[in-house]
Structure formats: C-alpha cells, structure tokens
Design a binder for these strands. Structure first.
Lengths: 231, 231
DNA sequence: CGACCATTTGATCCCCATCAACTAAAGTGG
DNA sequence: CCACTTTAGTTGATGGGGATCAAATGGTCG
C-alpha cells in the first residue's frame, strides 16, 4: 500500500473519519506500515505496550491468558480496528496477545507519537473516546451474557458476533470468511470445544448451519437470532 | 460544597489531576453540582445520554437489565469516578441505571459542554482515554472470571473488589462501608443470592468474615485472596 | 405489633465440564 | 505418492456444581 491508498482506506474507519485533511496527513505521516503473517502475533500479553496498531486488512484475535492457564478470546479485530490502545496510554503491559488469523497489514505508531497526535488533534481524541465507549458497552454486554445465559445461547451470540462483524454472503447462506475452530468459538463464549461441537452438530441436523473443518456457513441466520434470544 | 472546595476535591481524581489551573477553572465553571439521595437514580438505562457525571462523594451502583429481565451490576462508582461517559459521546442511550446506594453529590455536565471541554483541553481527553482504557481492561478481566471460574472464586473476587475500592479498617478487620445485600453481591459475580449466602455462611464458619444484614466485615482478607486464586 | 425485606438452609435436579475414545482431514518427509 | 504425525472434530458416559424450588427465621421500619 502506498500513502495515497492508505489515506483513502483509513478515512473509512470511524476513528479517523472526521479528521481534517491536515490532521489526516499528520497522522498518516507518523505511522509505519507493517505486515503480520498468519499465525504471528502483533504483540504479546505482558510485554510493555509501546506501540498502537490500526488494522488495515486481515484479521486478528486477542487472546487473554490468566495465571491459572485459562484463556479467553476478548475480541476479534478487523479493518478499522485499533489494537494496543487500552494499555499503551497507561504505560502498562499489553493485556492480551494479538494473533493474526489471516495475513494482515497494519499501521503502527509508537506510544509517544500517538499521544502527541492526540494532544495536537482534539478530534482524534474525541473519536477514540467514542470508540472506547463502544468497546466498554460491548464488553459489558458480553459480561451480562456470560453471567446469566446458558451455553447454547452464548454460542449463538458468539456466532452472530462473528457473522455481523465479518460475514460474507455465499449461495444459500452467510459464511465466516476466515478459519475458525470449535475451540476458538468456545473461548469466545466461555465453554469447551466439546460443547460447541455438540451444539453445532445439533444445529447442522436442523439445517441451521453447515460446518466443516475450521469453517462455518449459516444457512438460517434468523434461527440463530432466535436461539440467541433476540427475537 | 463551594467552588474552591470542589476544585481541591476533583484535583485528586485521576481524570482531572493533570489539568492546568486554567483548564480546571473552565471545567469546574461549566459544571453543575447535584445531590442524589440514596435509592434515587442519577440516570436510567435506555434514557438518552445527555449528561456526564463525576461522583464527588457517596456511591453508586450501575445496574444493567437485559430484555429477558436478568440483571447484573456492571460497576460501583465512588468519589472520582465518571458516569455516563460511555454512551454520551456516541449520542446513545445510557446502557445502565446508576442508583445511589448512599446519599451522594455529583458534578454534572451536559454532553455538548463536555465535548467542548474535551476539544478545548487535550489533556482532559488524554486523561479520559487512560481512564477508559482501565475500564475496558477491568471489564475484560471480569469477563475472563465469569467465563472460566467457579462461583466461590467469583464471589471472592467481587468481595475483594468491593473492599479494595472502598474498604474501611475497623478493629479486627476491614468493613464494606455501605449497605450491600447478598443479592447485589450475586449480581456482581453472576450467581444467585442463595449461593452467595451459602458461601458467606461457610466463610463465617471459618472465621474469614463476619456477616450481617446488608453488612460485611473481612476478618481475614488474605484468606479471601487465596480463595480468589491470587496467591 | 404487623408488614416487609434480607438471610438462611434443606432438597432436588439438570446443565455442562470432564474423561475417554475414536474418526477425519491436513500437513510432512522420504 | 504413500506412511506417519499432527490437528480438528465427533460422540458417549459420568459426575458434580450450582440453579431452582420451598420454607423458615431474623431484622427493620412505620
């Protein structure tokens, strides 16, 4: 990607949409593009958070490992999402590991550079505040689900989240356009791969989804909405 | 509280600590103080979020009700905490109801006023970004707990959170200095009042806590840390 | 004192994690 | 191209954690 292309791409993303022409130039000029191959991490949990990333294309999963070894996937990040902004401004370690699940391209800023940008471009700060507000609401919604709902419903929510964020229409349904395992769906919904497998098998029996190795196609999205309890 | 007192008080809070003298004057001048009596709500879930609050003293609980009627307590807010900032900047409805659990005083800004303040005082934006980063990490930590830990451990975490945020030393322990029910502890840890009651009863048998109606004293805080798995 | 709320405690049941074993698909290396 | 390994997924059996149902007790307040 060259600079002109980058500008046109990131203008589409919420955090940068409202910037003036000059601000945008400043923001892009101080960024450094970077590629992350599938399977590699943009950063690792525990490492000092000194770089902020914007995903240009591809996809990442954010994995959080607790001291007892348990893991969860806190979020998936695709084009337009920021990564590393949670801890970077607090001079804290990254709270998750960001693994690319597709070959991906990102823009990177050093923590100091991004702080300067925020101070120079109030609109950028405001956009980031809005973006983070949405993240917190999303996290609270997931917390609510995890605390009160049964597994099948939680799995339905996880699948819907995947599809809404990245679903791609195919003939006879919507597919998740990147490799995803039962294990990962489990980590996104607070259950085990076994239970996810049983649930997806049952859905497949009812013609609601088509499964496959690291692959999922929704045949009847509305049925899943109903299972999720969204009516 | 008069203006001088307010200034000296809010200077102690993270979000406002770094402001210049002039910025602080601007921020305080545009705020309106307000009292909220115990049991009343500062704002209600679903209502258009047009006011941002800073808690000066007292305490609030943020309750989220889902469409199926289930509830959780997403956070407690005490002196120095902001409320309403999640949705206000996104022109969205408040995602929770903020109920005062003690008679409380707050400062209030209209959404538009606060946005102007953020644009005029980049340091304020940066502080808010830091504050929100911490909130998201906290929410993800709770999500992790809710997804992977057993009830007793989750209850231990909820109690520790209460005590760390607001614990007051008394002879022979630390107490939670505001009325709190088993029900509420349940809503903070994703379980029922029955299970909380059983767990607290067991702890009381072991001399770890002293319970009472809407009251809790930790006799052996370290034991709870161990139960929480923090070693 | 009576009404109401918070708490306790027992009994029951089922959801789902865990254990275990097997199948299938995808690399890998000669 | 085929044996071998590795990784993903399926499915059965089992047991326990904790929700749910039920009822009683104790505190508080008007």
């Amino acid at each position: 990607m060259d600079i002109v292309e980058i500008k046109s791409v990131i203008r589409r993303f919420a955090v940068f949409a409202q910037l003036s022409h000059d601000s945008m130039a400043d923001v892009v000029r101080l960024s450094r593009p970077r590629c992350v191959r599938r399977g590699r991490a943009a950063f690792d949990q525990g490492q000092q958070a000194d770089v902020i990333f914007l995903v240009l294309n591809g996809r990442f999963k954010a994995i959080q490992v607790a001291s007892d070894g348990s893991q969860i996937v806190t979020r998936l990040a695709g084009a337009g999402d920021l990564m590393g902004h949670l801890s970077a401004f607090n001079e804290a370690p990254y709270p998750v590991t960001a693994v690319a699940i597709l070959d991906s391209e990102v823009l990177a800023w050093s923590q100091r550079t991004f702080v300067d940008l925020l101070l120079r471009h109030p609109q950028l700060s405001l956009a980031l505040i809005r973006y983070m507000g949405l993240s917190i609401e999303e996290a609270h919604k997931r917390l609510h689900e995890a605390s009160t709902e049964h597994v099948e419903r939680r799995v339905a929510h996880a699948v819907l989240r995947l599809v809404r964020q990245s679903g791609r229409p195919v003939d006879g349904g919507i597919e998740i356009p990147f490799p995803i395992t039962r294990q990962e769906i489990g980590l996104m919904s607070g259950t085990t791969l076994h239970t996810v497998s049983r649930i997806l098998s049952a859905w497949e029996q009812n013609g609601i989804v088509d499964g496959g190795r690291q692959h999922l196609v929704l045949r009847d999205p509305h049925a899943i909405v109903v299972i999720a309890g969204e009516q």
